[in-house]
Amino acid sequence: MDVFMKGLSKAKEGVVAAAEKTKQGVAEAAGKTKEGVLYVGSKTKEGVVHGVATVAEKTKEQVTNVGGAVVTGVTAVAQKTVEGAGSIAAATGFVKKDQLGKNEEGAPQEGILEDMPVDPDNEAYEMPSEEGYQDYEPEA
């Protein structure tokens, strides 16, 4: 019985440690998101679009440190934060509304985080759909 109880105690310690790591990862992701939003706020009209992409990228980098179902929630929060940063930029006159959601080359930025393969159960990952990809044929 002692062996059984000791095993359960060790398992509990492992769960607590994993929860603490997840909590730490979420806190880091939130900190990076805040950094990115402050970065966007300090940019001029020309830099705002690039700044919004930076927020998304920093958040995406930190999301990889967070495991399990938390990833889905962090990704949703990050996307809403990026959308909010863009709205703030438009409201303050840093950028025109028609410039939001495009990178410096004018290509749409939507789907940055949505296409990231995420499995809350950590069982399997699927690649994003290939609808947006084109076949590449090298020139002879």
Rank of each mutant, 00 (worst) to 15 (best):
E105M: 08
E126D: 10
K12D: 00
P120Q: 13
V40L: 13
S42N: 14
K97F: 13
T92H: 03
E139I: 11
A30W: 06
T54K: 05
V3K: 01
N65P: 02
V16K: 08
V74T: 02
D115K: 07
E57P: 02
E57M: 06
Q24V: 07
D98W: 14
A124H: 12
E139W: 10
V63C: 06
P128R: 10
L38C: 10
K102W: 14
V71M: 14
E126W: 04
A19I: 04
Y125R: 06
Y39W: 09
G67D: 01
S129G: 06
M5L: 00
S42H: 07
T75M: 12
A140Y: 08
E139D: 10
E139T: 03
A27Y: 13
K58Q: 06
T72I: 11
E35F: 15
E83A: 11
M5N: 02
E139P: 05
E61D: 05
E28F: 09
K21W: 08
V15R: 00
H50D: 06
G41W: 07
A91K: 04
T54N: 11
A56T: 08
M127L: 07
V55N: 00
E20T: 05
A91C: 06
Y39N: 03
Q109H: 10
G101A: 04
V71Y: 15
S9Q: 10
A85D: 02
G111N: 14
Q79N: 06
T22F: 07
V16P: 00
G31K: 11
S9F: 15
V74W: 13
P108Q: 08
G14L: 12
T92A: 13
Q62L: 06
V70L: 10
T59D: 00
E46Y: 07
E110W: 03
V82L: 13
P120G: 10
G67W: 11
E13Y: 11
F94M: 02
L100E: 08
G84Y: 13
A85G: 06
G14D: 02
V52N: 01
A29F: 15
A29Y: 12
V70R: 01
Y125K: 12
Q62C: 07
F4M: 02
A91E: 05
V40M: 06
P128F: 06
T22E: 00
P120I: 08
E131Q: 07
S9G: 10
E105N: 10
E83I: 12
A56K: 10
F94R: 01
P108M: 08
E114F: 12
V66M: 12
Q24L: 08
S129W: 05
H50T: 12
